[in-house]
Design a protein around this nucleic acid. Structure first.
Lengths: 204, 204
DNA sequence: TCTTAAAAAGAAGGATATTCTGTTTCGGAC
DNA sequence: GTCCGAAACAGAATATCCTTCTTTTTAAGA
């Protein structure tokens, strides 16, 4: 489950080798230098290719950004769905969501770091709509699953709009802090604590 | 407490009028177009000045970014300190932190939006160290205040590293969602709910 | 083997950030 | 009021970087 698998899954085969290589080096550049400071030339140099090849595969800089972003987003999402399928009630679902999130970030640090910093740039440019659509769809689907699971369960008293923030907010905040070095302990070590805290915060 | 006061406080006087104007227009550009897509020319056009003036005041694009960022950060921080001074125990402190945060975001949407999107770009460039130092200082100070207030209070059982994430995580996540349009209700309406939820999540 | 589309290379063009030089404005000393 | 120095401002010139375009190469399928 290392980071190159995300690329292998999405762009399989020998013919996509350069495409994967460009994306992998771009990911490192973006994380090391920042999105804006990363130049096409820097990426080009790292994978010993040409600007022509890069623009052939991705169109422009934002094309690289979006390819990386959606690959990571989908991988994270897939892992969540796999694990969420085994949840039998709301409590288990909440635990699933949080533990899946923390595990994914811990297992894919570079990708997670990138997801956090690439969202804003992407939310403006030409992929604005695609990002919005995916977000809406993801949240909608998750919402329905939670409502389904919540039927015979303890009643949640918080306003529904707050739900996702209460569930994922602390974990997300901690992961950002961890990736930036502000806290040292891997989020995985606090899996249970974050899950139980979130569950406690939901009830009234 | 509208947004221009942040600038008036930090760059007072008649002679700094253009400086403030540049910053105000830059803020709008960054939020509308995104940090990378905002050009010096676009800012120049909006305040009818020259590139020379802009570079005289800020050195480069990142200089504008940092001036805006630290102005907002300090304003948010000041508001927190003012309100936190009245807290007599840990519970009141937690309520203070959350309510102050939500109020500030609701009252300074443009600034809040900017804070969220400008952190990553800044965390790389030349202001990396200043940002880190301020962060460490702020967290250290807050930590000491909380420890002081926690003395005679209910014992918090969560690992200390998790504390700030549990307190501010849900509110932060909700504010991001609100500014991006994913949720509709102003965070201020959920002041009490977020505070109580966070407090509940801390205890075990 | 031949055809055709994809892949790759790199030069050329255009946009943008930054520097540099010159001019103007302004506050304080006298 | 005048003069001086520093800050403020303007805009041309430069450098960097993104993107486009043309050409060449590669590879899969008929």
């Amino acid at each position: 489950m290392n980071q190159s698998n995300i690329l292998e899954n999405r762009f399989p085969g020998r013919r996509a080798a350069l495409k994967r290589e460009i994306l992998e080096q771009a990911l490192l550049c973006f994380n090391d230098l920042g999105v804006e400071a990363t130049t096409i030339d820097a990426i080009k140099a790292r994978c010993d290719t040409s600007v022509g090849a890069i623009y052939h595969h991705f169109g422009n800089k934002e094309g690289i950004l979006s390819a990386l972003f959606f690959a990571a987003m989908d991988d994270q999402r897939q892992q969540l769905e796999r694990e969420l399928a085994g949840a039998n009630n709301l409590r288990e679902a909440v635990f699933c969501i949080i533990e899946s999130y923390l595990d994914w970030v811990a297992a894919n640090r570079e990708w997670a770091r990138f997801l956090y910093q690439a969202r804003s740039p992407l939310a403006k440019g030409p992929f604005q709509q695609e990002l919005k659509d995916r977000n809406i769809q993801n949240y909608q689907k998750l919402k329905e699953q939670l409502i389904g699971l919540g039927k015979g369960d303890i009643k949640i008293v918080q306003p529904f709009e707050m739900l996702f923030s209460l569930i994922i907010g602390p974990s997300e905040n901690y992961c950002r802090a961890w990736l930036s070095g502000r806290v040292k302990t891997s989020p995985q070590e606090y899996r249970k604590e974050f899950a139980e805290s979130a569950w406690r915060s939901l009830k009234r």
